[in-house]
């Protein structure tokens, strides 16, 4: 059972929004007393996901939440875009797979940096990625 304690939505449409988003994620992580390494992990993960959103879907929304599982608090980020969607999620989650000209580390790398990772995508409708990092996870 995960409870949401606070919720903040940020619209991402240009590169400056990315800097703003990273700062907000950092503030939120500091607020729940997340350690420095975990802060770095979640901000890096956010950076990867927001780049995907900018590149493939021209932007979207990010919801930053402080969540609680009872004993421990964490940061949950939900990235939603109305882009082209991902036809083959299994392939996109593989290291080195990319339809752009990148290294193909974004999605699988992000999954390794966070505690919970969920991706839903419908071709032609968009993609939603949800990640959770616990303060001590």
């Amino acid at each position: 059972m995960i409870l949401s304690l606070s919720k903040d939505t940020i619209k991402i449409s240009q590169e400056q929004d990315v800097v703003f988003l990273k700062n907000r994620v950092k503030e939120t992580a500091v607020k729940i007393k997340m350690g420095l390494v975990n802060q770095t992990r979640i901000i890096t993960a956010a950076s990867e996901l927001v780049r995907n959103m900018m590149r493939y879907a021209n932007g979207g929304n990010c919801v930053i939440e402080v969540v609680s599982s009872g004993r421990v608090n964490g940061v949950r980020l939900t990235f939603t875009d109305k882009g082209p969607g991902i036809p083959d999620i299994a392939a996109a989650m593989r290291d080195g797979f990319s339809t752009g000209r990148s290294l193909g580390l974004g999605l699988p790398g992000t999954k390794r940096l966070v505690n919970e990772f969920d991706i839903k995508s419908k071709v032609g409708e968009g993609t939603t990625v949800t990640i959770v990092k616990w303060a001590n996870g």
Binding site: T44, R112, L113
Partner: peptide, 14 residues
């Protein structure tokens, strides 16, 4: 390089 950056780079696979 900061230690936390080294950790995330390796976990990312870079």
């Amino acid at each position: 390089m900061q230690p936390a950056v080294a950790i995330t780079l390796i976990e990312l696979g870079l």
